[in-house]
Amino acid sequence: MSWNDDLASLSEALDETFGTQAVMHPMLARPNSRAAPDPKRPSFSIVGIFHENHRYAGDSARNSDGLKETKIASTECSFEAERGCFVSKPTQGDIIELVELGRRFRVMDITYGMPGRTKLILESLERLEMA
């Protein structure tokens, strides 16, 4: 058994332990107009691991109590799942809704890091709607 086989065998256990329920909404990419649901690729449920990493902007300032206050400039989120769990191949612009968290994201990029897994780089739709 190779190292890649060992990693691939962990995939299901990772999702069972750390997984988050999500619904993928495949979207049509339409130039110069809003994206619309793709009629050829129906929405589907999927379980995967959601990561939310924070990027910090600039130096932090000291509060009156001596603690530092750090401003978050942006978040770079991702969702990773077993490749075989995707009913249709994810594409840029698809929408993923995290059921347990009640949040929606747009797929910005797709990578294939760990053997047998797909990682979606996400952009929060709530942040865009608030602006």
Rank of each mutant, 00 (worst) to 15 (best):
L122A: 03
L98M: 13
Y112R: 14
D109A: 13
R83A: 15
T111S: 07
S124F: 00
P26H: 01
E97M: 07
A35M: 07
N32D: 15
T70I: 11
S9V: 12
A29K: 14
L128E: 14
G19N: 02
V23C: 02
C85N: 12
S2E: 13
K71W: 01
L101W: 13
S2T: 12
T70G: 09
A57M: 10
T20Q: 06
S33I: 07
V23K: 10
G113E: 12
A81K: 01
P31I: 07
S43T: 11
A73D: 13
A73Q: 09
G93K: 04
E69W: 06
G48A: 05
E126Y: 06
G84H: 09
I49S: 00
P42L: 06
A131V: 08
D38V: 08
P37Y: 03
L125I: 05
T118L: 08
L122D: 03
A81I: 07
L28P: 07
L14D: 06
A8L: 12
L128W: 01
G116I: 05
A8C: 03
N4L: 12
S2N: 15
E97S: 10
I96K: 00
L67Q: 14
P37M: 09
W3L: 15
S45R: 07
L128P: 01
E16V: 13
S78V: 02
G66C: 03
W3D: 08
P39E: 02
F86M: 05
S9K: 10
P39N: 05
E126W: 04
D109W: 05
P31T: 09
D59E: 13
E76N: 13
A8F: 11
S78Q: 07
S45I: 01
I121N: 10
F86C: 07
R83Y: 11
V107T: 03
R62C: 01
L98Q: 00
L101N: 03
E12Q: 10
P115L: 05
Q92D: 08
P26W: 00
E82K: 13
L122H: 00
S11E: 09
S2V: 01
V23Y: 04
A29T: 10
D15K: 05
K119G: 06
Y56L: 14
D5M: 11
G58E: 03
L14F: 13
A8P: 08
W3F: 15
R55F: 04
S74Q: 14
S78P: 02
I95V: 15
Y56P: 02
F105H: 02
S88D: 11
V23R: 12
P42N: 05
T118E: 01
G58H: 06
E126A: 14
V87R: 15
T91D: 15
A35D: 12
M114Y: 14
D94T: 00
R83K: 13
G58P: 01
I72E: 12
R41K: 12
E16M: 10
R62M: 09
T17N: 06
G19M: 01
H54S: 14
I46F: 01
F105M: 01
S43Q: 13
G58S: 08
T118Q: 04
E12I: 07
N32K: 13
A22M: 02
S45H: 06
P115R: 11
K40Y: 00
F50K: 04
D6C: 10
